[in-house]
Computed example of a mutant assay.
Amino acid sequence: MLQFINQLLHKSVQSLSPCLLCGIDRQQQHSLCNTCWNELPWYKQHIERHQHQIVCAYRYDFPIDRIIQVYKYEQQLQYQTLLAQSLLNLSLPKIQAIVPMPISTARLKERGYNQMLIIAKIMARQLNIPVWQPVIREAQHSQ
């Protein structure tokens, strides 16, 4: 019951909040107004690599490139919902778990959070699947 009330309260506050990009219209689609959501640089194709189909949400163009940068490096965590919902918006195959890539210990200390773990947890909650963290980062240098 408490979770239901929390979700209802979150939706009410969100509907009164301005769009994260234009700041003019009210939020409609995952922290953005409908106009800004529709104008994002959606990547509408699949990529074939090594006999695997790769699905991408966006082309790395404005404003997504800037959103990712400020989310990762400037602790602008208000973009977490937008990024998670963008991935959930894709036509994904049946998923059994989400595996976020770990960041180096130095980056974790510097940022104070693993940005992909946050997104993975949002997605896992919506899909009702677990977040698995079996990947161990051996090299501790930047990618």
Score class of each variant (00 low, 15 high):
Y71L: 04
K72Q: 00
K72R: 05
K72G: 00
Y73M: 06
Y73R: 06
E74P: 03
E74H: 15
Q75Y: 12
Q75P: 05
Q75R: 14
Q76N: 13
Q76S: 13
L77V: 03
L77N: 03
Y79K: 06
Q80V: 10
L82K: 05
L83S: 04
L83D: 00
A84R: 03
Q85K: 12
Q85F: 09
S86R: 02
L88V: 01
N89V: 03
N89Q: 10
N89H: 15
L90E: 06
L92H: 08
L92K: 08
P93F: 06
K94F: 12
I95Y: 05
I95P: 02
I95M: 05
Q96H: 11
Q96E: 12
A97S: 13
V99K: 02
P100L: 04
M101D: 02
P102T: 02
P102V: 03
I103P: 04
I103M: 08
S104W: 00
T105S: 10
T105L: 11
A106R: 11
A106K: 10
R107S: 14
L108N: 09
G112Y: 09
Y113P: 11
N114C: 06
Q115Y: 05
M116P: 11
M116G: 11
M116K: 07
L117W: 05
I118M: 13
I119R: 01
I122V: 10
M123G: 01
M123L: 07
A124S: 06
R125D: 15
Q126C: 11
L127Y: 08
L127M: 14
N128I: 15
N128C: 14
